Computed example of a mutant assay.
Amino acid sequence: MKRAALVQRRERQKVQTVSCPCCEARLALHFINGENAVYDVTLLGTTVDSQPHDGKLSRMEAAGQDFKDATTAHRVHDEKDSGNEVQAYILETSATDTLLDKEMREIQPEKSRPEEDKKHLCLQSTVKTSGDGPGNSKLFSLFYRSKKTVHLVRHGHTSSLISLVEPSARFDLRLTTLGHQQARNIAPKMAALKPEVILVSPLTRALQTLSGAFPSIQEPGQHHVEVTPLHAEHVMCTGDIGRPPKILAGEFPWLSFDGLPEVWWYSQSEHPNDAVRMEFNSVEPMEELRKRVGVFRQFLRSRPENIIVVIGHSTFFKELTSSRQRLMNCETRTILL
């Protein structure tokens, strides 16, 4: 990663302020002009109070250097389990399945729709077949409500980037004690869903949430689980950079990481992101994230299962559902595709 002192002023780009969805940190990302390369990150405060902390701004080296000035400046926000009941959401789609490809309609809770509206979700057309008589007319659906149910589950509470003492732990964030408890708390709810397949992100916080939410996950034949990087989190900070499949397989030997690329997270050859080397040099553009969201949506539709659990991340799910609100830790949202 390039140091700020080594980057000429004419190469510097206006700072972009972002909020980390995992540890609640408000970060100012400094870029090299014309590139998506990060050369420095400034800690502004937290999204809890949305106010800068007293004193000088703390410098946070993205490659995992000393954060001692920022340790006392950052306050960890423990998100509590919402405990809300699972709500069903409807995504209306056409028979040609192209409506959502162009633009996803606003998602509305199913219980808020009048019964009359639900009845008219399926429009019908009369087609005359060969032969005479009223019995030769058939009805074909022009629009339909699919029965593929997808339960989105956000991972549990994670450690703060700033509070961690070990620099390597700031990459691929892990769950806190609270996060593990949140995952265990939703185990009865997950069992009641009876998923035909569980799709989990390769980021460690999602894999740990899987282990807590499905206690029998280590028992052979109990669950059909697939690890897929398609719905990994938007790479915005060190905590979103994953680790190679060999390392993950050593920590989660009961899961299969076959087919997972060596570098499955967003990384540029010129500006690589590497958790093992503690390098964070590029942020995933929103255009790339939205492409992944589109591919993942089609991936869900193409699957043979009708009940799917997806364990993943808030920013990705926010884009997938076109929602203005992020899921809380271990909160569940159900959509129909």
Rank of each mutant, 00 (worst) to 15 (best):
Ala63Gly: 09
Ala70Ser: 09
His74Arg: 00
Arg59Trp: 06
Asp66Gly: 01
Ala62Gly: 02
Ser82Val: 10
Ala88Met: 07
Leu57Asp: 13
Thr71Lys: 08
Ser82Met: 10
Thr47Gly: 12
Asp49Pro: 00
Met60Asp: 03
Val86Gly: 02
Ser94Lys: 05
Glu92Pro: 10
Thr93Ala: 10
Val48Ala: 08
Ala62Thr: 00
Lys80Ser: 13
Val76Ala: 10
Leu100Pro: 13
Ser58Phe: 01
Leu57Ala: 08
Thr47Asp: 15
His74Phe: 07
Thr93Tyr: 10
Met104Asn: 12
His53Pro: 03
Arg105Asp: 15
Val76Gln: 07
Thr96Tyr: 12
Leu100Cys: 11
Val86Glu: 05
Ser82Asn: 09
Leu91Ala: 12
Glu61Ala: 09
Ser50Trp: 08
Lys102His: 14
Arg75Asn: 06
Glu79Asp: 08
Ala73His: 04
Thr47Cys: 10
His74Tyr: 07
Ala95Gln: 11
Asn84Trp: 04
Gln51Cys: 07
Thr93Asn: 10
Asp69Glu: 11
His77Asn: 06
Leu57Cys: 05
Met104Pro: 09
Lys80Pro: 07
Thr72Ser: 14
Ser82Asp: 11
Asp81Thr: 05
Arg75Tyr: 15
Asp66Thr: 02
Val76Phe: 15
Pro52Met: 00
Arg105Thr: 12
His74Ile: 03
His74Ala: 11
Asp81Phe: 08
Ser58Gly: 11
Glu106Asn: 06
Gln65Trp: 11
Gly64Arg: 00
Glu79Leu: 07
Ala63Trp: 06
Arg75Glu: 15
Gly55Pro: 04
Gln65Met: 15
Glu92Arg: 11
Ala88Ser: 13
Pro52Gln: 03
Phe67Pro: 09
Ser50Ile: 07
Phe67Thr: 09
Glu106Ser: 06
Leu91Pro: 08
Glu92Thr: 11
Gly55Arg: 02
Met104Arg: 15
Ser94Ile: 04
Ala73Arg: 06
Gln65Cys: 13
Gly83Glu: 03
Gly64Tyr: 01
Val48Glu: 15
Asp81Met: 02
Glu92Val: 11
Ile90Val: 13
Gln87Pro: 02
Gln87Met: 09
Thr72Asp: 12
Glu106Asp: 12
